[in-house]
Amino acid sequence: MMQSADFQEERRDDVAIVRLSGNFAVAHLDTLPDRLDAVSGPVGRVDMAGVTHIDTIGAWIIHRFAARHGAQLEGASDDAARLIAEVGKDEDPVSIRPDASPPLLRVLGEIGAATRIAGETMYGLLGFFGATLITAWSMIRHPSRVRVHAVVQRLEVVGVSALAIIGLMSFLIGIVIAQQGSVQLRQFGLEVMTINLVGRLTFRELGVLMTAIMVAGRSGSAFAAQLGTMKLTEEIDAMRTIGVSPMEALVMPRVIAAVVMMPLLGFYASIVAIIGGGFLCAVALDIPPVTFVQRIREVVPITDVYVGMIKAPVFGLIIAITGCFQGLQVKANAEEVGNRTTAAVVQAIFIVIVLDAFFAVFFTWVGWI
Rank of each mutant, 00 (worst) to 15 (best):
V15N: 10
V299S: 02
A357F: 06
A85H: 12
I173V: 14
R106W: 03
E191F: 13
F267A: 14
F325V: 04
V272T: 08
I321A: 02
G189F: 04
G243K: 00
G119P: 05
T322G: 11
Q347D: 08
L206K: 09
G278N: 10
P102M: 11
E10H: 15
Q179T: 15
T341M: 04
E234A: 03
E10K: 15
A225M: 06
F128V: 06
I349C: 09
F188W: 07
V366G: 02
F359I: 02
V366R: 07
A38N: 02
A118F: 14
S170A: 15
V354F: 13
A113V: 12
L232R: 02
F171V: 09
L250V: 04
G367M: 03
A49N: 13
Q72R: 12
I61V: 13
V366C: 08
F363N: 02
V361C: 05
A348K: 06
A360H: 08
G75K: 11
G88H: 04
L104C: 03
V244C: 05
E110A: 12
I96Y: 13
G217D: 03
A27E: 11
P103Q: 05
V208A: 07
V18D: 07
I296V: 14
V183D: 11
V87L: 06
E9F: 04
A76C: 03
T202H: 04
E120S: 12
S4V: 10
Q226R: 13
V157T: 10
R204L: 03
M239L: 13
P253R: 11
I256Q: 04
F129G: 11
H53M: 12
T56K: 09
G181A: 02
Q329V: 00
G217V: 06
Q3S: 12
L108P: 05
S40N: 14
E298R: 10
S77E: 05
H142P: 10
W365R: 10
M239D: 05
F223S: 03
L317F: 15
V307Y: 08
R97C: 03
G338M: 10
W365S: 11
A164Y: 15
I195E: 00
T31L: 08
A178N: 05
Q184C: 00
G207E: 04
W137V: 13
R145Y: 08
F65N: 04
R147G: 01
I54L: 13
L185Q: 01
A113N: 12
T291F: 13
T132C: 12
L172N: 02
A164N: 13
L206V: 12
P98A: 14
R19P: 01
E335K: 14
P313G: 04
C281H: 02
F359Y: 12
A312C: 05
V158F: 09
Q326S: 05
D356W: 08
V283H: 15
A71W: 12
F292Y: 15
V39K: 10
M261I: 03
A222K: 08
I84P: 00
A216S: 14
G119F: 05
E335P: 01
T135R: 02
S21P: 02
H69A: 05
V259C: 09
V354D: 07
G50P: 00
G220M: 01
P288S: 10
S4F: 08
T31E: 11
L73K: 01
A113D: 07
A114M: 09
M247N: 01
G308P: 00
I287W: 04
G199R: 00
Q3E: 10
I57P: 00
G44D: 09
R154L: 02
G50A: 08
K311Q: 06
P246D: 07
V148W: 12
Q326K: 14
Q8H: 14
